[in-house]
C-alpha cells in the first residue's frame, strides 16, 4: 500500500484538460437548450396533438428511456453512415444527447403542464384567448415553475452523462482524461482530478439553476 500520489504530471496538462472541459460545457448547454425545446414541443404534442401524433411521441419517449444512452450514441455515429449520413463526433454527440434529454424532458414538461388546473385554462378561454395564447400566457410559466426542480436535476444528469461521448472520440473532458492517462500512466490521479472537475461542474450548475429560479420566477 505504498502508493505515492503524484499530481504534477497531470496538472502539467491543464490546458488540455481545459479544452475537454470547454467541450463538455458546450455539449451540455447546447443539448439542454435543444432538449428543452424538444421536451416542450413533445409534451404539447403528447397532450394536445392528434391521436396518431400522441402515439408517436409516446413511442419516442419509451424507446429512449428504456435504452442506454451509449447505444443511442452509437446508432447515431456508427449507424447513420449506413444511410449516407456521416456526422463528426461532436455533431453526433449533440444529436444523441438532445434526443435523449428530449425524451426525459417531454415527460417532465408533460407532468408540469398537467399540474395546471383546468379552471385556469377555462378562465383564459372565457376571456377570448386562443388555445395558443392560453398556453403561452397562462399555462407555461406556472408549469415551468412546477417542473423546474425535476428539469434542473435532469440537466445535471445530462451534463454528467456527456462523458459517454468519449466513446466516439469526441474530445470532451473524459476523453482528454483518457489521453492524459495514456501519456502519464497516472491513472488514479487523472481520474481523481476528473471526478473533482465533474463534481465542481455539477455544484456550479446547481448554484446557477437556483439563481436562475430566482430571476425567472421572482415577482416584479
Amino acid at each position: 500500500m505504498g502508493y505515492r500520489f503524484n499530481f504534477r504530471d497531470v496538472f502539467a496538462q491543464q490546458d488540455f484538460l481545459l479544452e475537454g472541459l470547454v467541450l463538455t460545457l458546450q455539449l451540455s448547454f447546447v443539448a439542454m437548450a435543444l432538449g428543452l425545446l424538444v421536451g416542450v414541443t413533445g409534451a404539447a404534442l403528447r397532450l394536445y396533438g392528434p391521436r396518431p401524433v400522441r402515439a408517436v411521441v409516446a413511442t419516442y419517449v419509451e424507446a429512449i428511456r428504456n435504452t442506454p444512452l451509449l447505444v443511442q450514441l452509437f446508432l447515431v455515429f456508427f449507424g447513420l453512415p449506413s444511410l449516407g449520413i456521416r456526422l463528426d463526433a461532436t455533431t453526433a454527440s449533440i444529436i444523441a444527447l438532445t434526443v435523449n434529454l428530449g425524451a426525459y424532458a417531454t415527460e417532465i414538461v408533460r407532468a408540469g403542464l398537467q399540474a395546471i388546473p383546468r379552471a385556469q385554462i377555462e378562465a383564459g378561454v372565457s376571456l377570448g384567448l386562443s388555445r395558443l395564447q392560453v398556453f403561452r400566457y397562462i399555462v407555461l410559466m406556472p408549469a415551468l415553475r412546477v417542473m423546474y426542480p425535476a428539469l434542473a436535476s435532469q440537466f445535471i444528469l445530462l451534463m454528467l452523462a456527456t462523458s459517454v461521448v468519449s466513446q466516439i472520440s469526441a474530445p470532451d473532458l473524459f476523453h482528454t482524461a483518457s489521453i492524459i492517462q495514456s501519456r502519464t500512466f497516472r491513472d488514479f490521479e487523472v481520474y481523481i482530478v476528473v471526478a473533482a472537475l465533474y463534481l465542481a461542474l455539477a455544484l456550479a450548475f446547481r448554484l446557477a439553476f437556483a439563481g436562475l429560479y430566482q430571476v425567472a420566477f421572482a415577482r416584479r
Binding site: A119, Q120, E122, A123, G124, V125, S126, L127, G128, L129, S130, Y137, I138, M141, P142, R145, F217
Partner: peptide
C-alpha cells in the same frame, strides 16, 4: 373567441392567474 370577448364569466373559485 369573438363571442367570449362579449360574454364575461366569473367562477366560484375566482381562477385568477397566480403568476
Amino acid at each position: 373567441r369573438a363571442l367570449r370577448q362579449r360574454v364575461g364569466i366569473v367562477f366560484q373559485s375566482y381562477n385568477l392567474f397566480p403568476h
